[in-house]
Amino acid sequence: MKLTTLLAGAAMALGLATSALADGHEKTKVGFVFVGPIGDGGWTYEHNKGRLMVEEQLGDAVETVFVENVAEGPDSERVMTQMALDGADLIFTTSFGYMDPTINIAKKFPDVKFEHATGYKRADNVSTYSARFYEGRAIQGHIAGKMTKSNIIGYIASYPIPEVIRGINAAYIHAAKVNPDVEFKIIWAYTWFDPAKEADAARALIEQGADVVLQHTDSTAPQAAAQEAGNVVTFGQASDMAQYGPFPRVSSIIDEWGPYYVARTKAVMDGTWESMDTWDGIGAGMVGIGEITDAVPADVKEEALAMKAAIADGSYHPFTGPIKKQDGSDWLAEGEVADDGTLAGMSFYVEGLTGEIPQ
């Protein structure tokens, strides 16, 4: 179901919620489980902006609660359990590693609705939602391929999961399209948020000759490291990170969770909530592209914006053949578009990338 569909009937839902309060019913309680701090400037910061939008738009009809810095694993189960025991009607769990814990706790609380971000396991009371971040990575790859002078692009990866592998592939494909000499150097940080590790990874990539650094980690530390180095291009991750513009941060991927959070909360309020999968991108507004600064040559900026428009209207898909896998085997024929099932479970590099994906 698309985000636009979710937003239909929103006014009616809000009216029902307000009426319910007038009749003496309790507020709808919505919980958020965050993997990082709300001040990380990236992933969790944007999820928390979505939470605040729920409060702003639904007002006295809702109460939101959150816990930040929740480790993926047993600790997250404890947090989810406590939220459910404290009366949460709806709980958003906002990191891939919360997938199995979410399923486990949902079984124990069948009357509570759960929404898990970036995963693929569902239940009667568990929905999944994610954004097509790879669409933004394709645009970044195009800009990176055009702007690198060393032909070395660094990539700070978090964990070897399909979401991250998709992003690396999308960025590389589009960098190599405009610069066949480009080389990607990838450092796996094995963290979503650790400013010290992220800064070290950025410095290591810069020492290896990278003059463009992309990241799939959540802090602004790589931006600061690039700023210190000078002449290194970066892109904001999950949030705009515009404080580092116009250079080194020349654009960004922005996660726009708020409208989804509002729509799903209203669905709980009016009794229309159903378990479903949502995977939206630039066209539906779930993925935003931050301002492309004047540090990017005008023609490159124009090309990037044209790609954004084509992705948004569906006339271009970032994974369109011909594309081979890293081992040289055929994957997509000329004009063939990758199916969502393959993308959702992507576990391979495309041709041209070096190194192995960690197991």
Rank of each mutant, 00 (worst) to 15 (best):
V212R: 10
T148W: 10
A88I: 00
P101V: 10
A84T: 00
E183T: 14
N231Q: 14
D181V: 08
P358L: 13
P162W: 15
N69A: 04
L7C: 04
Q82Y: 00
E256L: 12
G39V: 03
L3A: 03
I103L: 15
T272D: 10
Y190L: 11
V250C: 07
H116Q: 15
S95G: 06
D255L: 13
H47S: 02
P110R: 09
N69C: 03
I152T: 15
A88G: 01
R78L: 11
T234N: 10
L3V: 01
I253N: 13
I311M: 15
Q326T: 03
E274K: 07
L343K: 07
G335Q: 10
D200K: 15
V350K: 10
V54H: 05
G288W: 07
I206F: 13
R264M: 15
Y316N: 06
T220N: 05
P322I: 06
G39S: 09
E228R: 08
R249N: 12
G141E: 15
A8R: 08
T94S: 08
D280F: 08
G341Q: 13
A88T: 01
G9S: 04
G9N: 07
V213L: 10
S19A: 14
G230S: 11
Q243N: 01
A295L: 12
L3C: 00
I186E: 12
V213C: 05
G285W: 06
G236Q: 04
Q140F: 09
Y172P: 07
G341D: 13
L343T: 03
H216F: 15
E302Q: 15
V164M: 13
W43H: 02
G283K: 09
F92G: 02
M286T: 01
T354F: 07
K107S: 05
G36P: 00
K108C: 03
R132L: 15
L353D: 11
M12L: 14
Y260L: 08
H216I: 05
H47E: 04
A17D: 09
A221I: 05
T28S: 08
D89W: 03
F235V: 00
K308Y: 09
H317Y: 14
W43M: 03
M286C: 02
A10M: 13
T278H: 04
Y98Q: 05
E63T: 01
V182W: 11
G59V: 02
R137Q: 10
A201L: 12
I311P: 03
H216T: 03
A199C: 04
I282K: 08
F34Q: 02
F184Q: 11
V287K: 04
S95Q: 10
E135T: 04
I323P: 02
I152W: 07
V54T: 01
G258F: 02
P110Y: 14
G119P: 00
E228Q: 14
T18L: 13
V350M: 07
I152S: 08
E46G: 03
T81W: 05
G345H: 09
D340Y: 12
G97V: 03
G245M: 15
P180M: 09
L85W: 02
P110Q: 11
E115W: 05
G258I: 01
A17I: 10
